[in-house]
């Protein structure tokens, strides 16, 4: 089991560092011959989760992005200090109306194998798990 984390200010600017960090870690996880789309899908889920976390926090607060992985799974956590949220309260995107926003969690759930959200006093943690071998959930 290996792990890496980065602590970011809750500002949109941090997406840049978050993306660079994610690319670096994905490179470390998947090695030289990654399965097609897998790295991209992980990067996409992370981008969605980070953007959500940053948007719901004050800029003086911190968002912590963490990866831990072994040969079979990668577990990605996004901790923020923003307000309480429950996954079941988040509505599905409005596809009929071609909405401009509200796709984040839907994309995360579609691309990842398991998604949980825990609320604590003073923050919450989104945990996304993705299998790295055979049997990826079809999107």
């Amino acid at each position: 089991m290996k792990a890496r984390t980065i602590e970011l200010s809750a500002m949109l600017d941090s997406l840049r560092s978050g993306a660079l960090f994610t690319d670096e870690v994905i490179g470390e996880i998947l090695g030289d011959s990654p399965p097609p789309h897998l790295g991209y899908n992980i990067a996409l889920a992370v981008s969605e989760a980070l953007t959500n976390a940053i948007r719901h926090c004050k800029s003086s607060e911190k968002v912590i992005l963490g990866f831990s992985w072994d040969s079979e799974h990668v577990v990605i956590t996004v901790d923020d200090q923003g307000c309480e949220l429950h996954l079941e309260d988040v509505p599905e995107p409005d596809f009929e109306d071609a909405a401009e926003c509200g796709y984040g969690l839907y994309i995360i759930r579609t691309l990842m194998d398991d998604v949980t959200l825990e609320n604590f006093t003073g923050g919450k943690r989104l945990t996304m798990t993705k299998r790295l071998i055979e049997g990826n959930k079809p999107s």
Partner: peptide, 10 residues
């Protein structure tokens, strides 16, 4: 960004 990634924090 490279510095933040190296440090693990911004």
């Amino acid at each position: 960004s490279e510095l933040a990634v190296h440090r693990g924090s911004d």
